[in-house]
Write a protein that binds this DNA or RNA. Structure first.
Lengths: 327, 327
DNA sequence: TTGAAAGCGCTAACAG
DNA sequence: CTGTTAGCGCTTTCAA
């Protein structure tokens, strides 16, 4: 590995000049050429660690998500990555596994590695951002809102809940259950609230509490809840799934019980990228995950550049794609 | 941010002692206590950048994969992460998007950031590892083999192809098509070879070339090829999908054409984590993706620790899960 | 526009 | 066991 000193010597200039060439400050054309030449010959790559140590900041942003195996988050990650790499930043993906302590470890690494900003979908409502915010680093919350005064990007979660439920009601279903994620995550709570409002208005006689389940945002969560609901003395005739994976689990269980979708109505909040189901049998509320990533990354970059305006929260609209094959 | 000097002063020791305390070299108990106390009071976190600059290596490993949206790779990533974090290493996930130049950029970053090792599923057979290997960093290839003399972990790809095909033949299918990934990726080629061998032996009269398609390892690849195959004058009565996403695409198209799986036989090489399909309608050759990640990470850590034995290639056996609902 | 020189925070000889 | 000291490679005043 060659250093700026090697390059400087070969080019006949000072190390400072080499540094300037690689940082775009004014250097005479001839010296620029000489330096570039020498750098080429030595296949010189600037040592980022040294630069980071000196500058106390690096062009890396951390993206902390609770489940790397959920396509919703990986799609979002793609959005973040595209914007970031366009701007010369790298993205480090950190999987908190929905555990606050793992999350805290990654946050600590982000500080210790001088990363310039963080985009985070918090593991929990108890996620503590005090330390990271105390360092002055910008943090953008995605998918889930926080109690902190920071930028955020969220889906129109309540609207997603209402649209999904309305669509099932319009299709004639009545006992519409809801399977959501952990109750204390605002995203899950909001979607549930949307379902509750619409369903109460349409069928005030229903026992909503009996039709509602809170589970993990994973396939097994959806499966467990769906099994429970089917075992009810009076099972639901339709179900709203609070996220994509819960939807997969619920549909799996229904299929296994011989209740293929239009038979029991299904609406899923979130897309099902890898489903083999006939796409028209299930209502899908598409959530613009990639767009969420793009928006969050742009906001973060603005903050990194020094933008000081008050914290903003962007709410992303979603798009309902109704089941079409219902008889 | 406080430094070891601050801690040293408060604890009444030298900076070197503070460093020793944080690196486990012998220090008297009382000084250890004093240092820990002081560090606590100042909420001191060692500056990793400085340590990296000094040590010329950091406890970070890069995991470069061609498609972060493929559950196969994210499952593998989980395996890598578990082993790595156990050993005190962090994992940086890099998405090459199957593009050699993006991949090269990440490799360059891995060097510039002094990461201690790389696990890579190469984008292409033209991936160039010369530069990274020249730095002396250990590299482990996963999922796809390379022409370099380095450690590797691959699936039993040919066996996967033969098992999948055999299962369909045993079930009575005859015109069994194959949809694989890019032909020049050895993983794809091997799986195809397995299919070809078995099918030729069973039905020597078939025109195999006409039943074979090479596509991208993605859902749209599977869709396109399946549409083509169905449009054939004499369409296949079964199909082997070369990976999970191709399987999803193929099944989607079949479903849309009213040919739900046991009607046309389907065998998929790779698991379908998020399908809503009745699990017993399709033959699945399970690939131990997580295990691949675990194995690769362990090998890499051994190399990082200085192991110099000749390069090894580990081949992971897979498990066939036959369709059970066939009549 | 250019160079000299002083660190960024940490580690690793080397003495003691 | 402990302290002193010399850098790791780069950026950035400060002078020239």
């Amino acid at each position: 590995m060659s250093t700026i000193y090697d390059v400087a010597e070969l080019a006949g200039v000072s190390p400072a000049t080499v540094s300037r060439v690689f940082n775009g400050t004014s250097v005479s054309d001839e010296k620029v050429a000489a330096v570039r030449d020498a750098a080429e010959k030595l296949s010189f790559t600037p040592n980022r660690t040294a630069r980071t140590l000196r500058r106390q900041s690096s062009e890396v942003i951390a993206l902390v998500i609770p489940d790397i195996e959920n396509p919703y988050f990986t799609e979002m990650a793609r959005g973040v990555e595209d914007v970031a790499s366009e701007a010369g930043y790298s993205v480090v993906l950190c999987n908190s596994d929905a555990q606050v302590d793992k999350e805290a470890t990654y946050l600590r690494i982000a500080i210790a590695e001088h990363m310039s900003g963080i985009i985070i979908a918090t593991a929990d409502e108890s996620t503590n951002l005090d330390t990271i915010l105390a360092t002055g680093r910008p943090v953008v919350a995605v998918d889930r809102s926080t109690t902190y005064d920071i930028d955020g990007v969220v889906m129109a979660n309540r609207a997603a809940g209402t649209s999904a439920t309305k669509d099932l009601i319009d299709a004639g279903y009545r006992r519409i259950a809801y399977i959501g994620g952990p109750e204390h995550i605002d995203t899950a709570a909001e979607r549930a609230a949307g379902w509750r409002t619409v369903l109460t208005a349409a069928h005030p006689d229903l026992d909503l509490d009996g039709l509602q389940r809170f589970e993990t945002f994973r396939v097994d969560g959806g499966r467990a809840a769906m099994e429970e609901l089917l075992a009810l003395p009076e099972p639901p005739d339709a179900v709203v799934a609070g996220n994509n994976l819960i939807g997969v689990g619920a549909i799996q269980v229904l299929t296994e019980h011989g209740l293929t979708p239009p038979e029991v109505g299904v609406a899923v909040i979130g897309s099902l990228p890898f489903t083999t189901l006939s796409p028209s049998a299930v209502t899908v509320v598409r959530l613009p995950a990639r767009h969420m990533g793009v928006t969050a990354a742009r906001m973060l970059l603005e903050r990194i550049k020094g933008d000081k305006q008050p914290a903003r929260t962007v709410v992303l609209r979603n798009e309902v794609q109704p089941a079409s094959k219902r008889s």
